[in-house]
């Protein structure tokens, strides 16, 4: 997942991006997978990276921007080291997901789609993680946590540095 990648390895990040271009050279409909891979590399989608992708595959930059702002997976601003995705889906909603959200949001001092100042956490919501049997549910990075209470959610989150 998105871990902190600082200025120094910008060059190596671009080198990695170049490799990704080679992989998608002959792939039809490469824009979205390219943006996904670029976001893996850079942690978010800087404007210059989107511009480079557009040039590379001959797609208008305006279109790339339109695609990147359409899908909720793409982020145009740097995000935290740990991504918290609290489910607000139906099953979680009826089992008190709103309270969990409120507690986590208060504890971290950030609202939906915001990042803590120390870049440790980004708080997001998602509509159903497909683990409704364990509602309420959240994902931290790639781990799923279920049967949450406000306190349990906060305790789990604290385990991610």
């Amino acid at each position: 997942m998105a871990s902190c990648k600082c200025e120094q390895n910008l060059e190596s990040q671009y080198q990695e991006l170049q490799k990704v271009f080679d992989k998608y050279r002959t792939v039809q409909g490469a824009l979205i997978p390219l943006l996904q891979e670029a976001q893996e590399i850079f942690g978010y989608l800087p404007g210059d990276v989107m511009k480079k992708i557009s040039r590379e595959i001959g797609v208008p930059f305006s279109k790339t921007f339109g695609v990147a702002t359409f899908y909720s997976q793409f982020h145009l601003k740097p995000r935290g080291r740990n991504i918290i995705r609290l489910c607000q889906g139906t099953a979680c909603h009826v089992r008190g997901a709103a309270k969990v959200f409120e507690a986590v949001s208060n504890d971290l001092g950030v609202d939906r789609n915001e990042t803590t100042e120390d870049r440790r956490y980004t708080l997001e919501t998602v509509a159903c993680l497909g683990a409704c049997g364990l509602a309420p549910v959240m994902m931290v990075n790639d781990d799923t946590h279920g049967r949450l209470t406000p306190d349990k959610a906060i305790a789990e989150i604290k385990k991610y540095d």
Binding site: G47, F65, G66, F70
Partner: peptide
């Protein structure tokens, strides 16, 4: 967009926030 090398504007964002945008708005 009918003139491929212009294609200066497109739809951006989504839903109620949809807006006609240039690259990077």
């Amino acid at each position: 967009n009918a003139i491929p090398d212009r294609s200066v504007i497109d739809f951006g964002y989504r839903g109620f926030n949809t807006k006609i945008v240039t690259a990077m708005d």
